[in-house]
Design a binder for these strands. Structure first.
Length: 198
DNA sequence: CCATTAACGCGAG
DNA sequence: CTCGCGTTAATGG
């Protein structure tokens, strides 16, 4: 967890509950709160000129949501859409900065978190720039598995649908299916009940 | 809604 | 020409 709930609450945070498809903020909205996920999952997405969805991130418990916007004077470049019933703790921007000023270690933790996310953005961009569909998909799978403790083969169930994998990689769902089948044939993944084990 | 398959088009190499 | 990906359509869960 990035920041302890008790500390956020002490600075005036509130807890909101959301249902699937709820929108926490929209593209072009002005950032006003620091958000941190208590439970559930949230995606950050953008629709391109052709109406095709690009998923920038799928965030889970303990992670903050687009906190980088609090540090710059810009509108959100993505929508935040709830995937599963979720609870989110939110702290007004002003309180967030007061908390950072009064707690050196929190300030450092947020820096570290931002750095990590930026680092993985580089990695993901490198993978996603590949012409090879396998490289793009494995990049996403490696990233999601990196949050998971058991690193042994086939121990991790990819928590994404084929369509979501396609929207993250910019590929078509049929290409994702073909590529995953091929990875299974080469013993890189297993498929059980449609779920991808990696 | 999600996963899969097949046929076909098309561009890159 | 071959290969891989996108497109379309159809099928089944």
């Amino acid at each position: 967890m990035l920041i302890k709930e008790e500390l956020l609450l002490a600075y005036g945070a509130e807890i909101d509950s959301f249902d699937p498809n709820d929108i926490i903020f929209n593209e072009a909205d002005k950032p006003r709160y620091y958000y941190q996920i208590i439970s559930g999952r949230i995606k950050l997405n953008h629709y391109n000129e052709a109406g095709k969805e690009l998923i920038l991130a799928i965030l889970h418990k303990g992670l903050s949501v687009c906190e980088l916007l609090l540090f710059i004077d810009k509108s959100y470049p993505v929508n935040a859409i709830v995937l599963e019933p979720s609870r989110v703790i939110k702290l007004p921007k002003k309180n967030f900065f007061q908390m950072m000023d009064e707690n050196q270690e929190i300030s450092r933790d947020v820096n570290k978190f931002l750095s990590e996310r930026l680092y993985y953005k580089f990695i993901m961009l490198e993978n996603n720039s590949s012409l090879n569909a396998e490289v793009r998909i494995k990049g996403v799978m490696d990233y999601h598995k990196s949050f998971y403790t058991d690193q042994s083969a086939f121990s991790f169930e990819i928590p994404l649908t084929r369509q979501q994998l396609a929207s993250i990689t910019g590929l078509r769902v049929e290409t994702v299916i073909r590529t995953i089948k091929n990875l299974e044939k080469h013993n890189v993944v297993k498929i059980r009940n449609g779920k991808i084990l990696y």
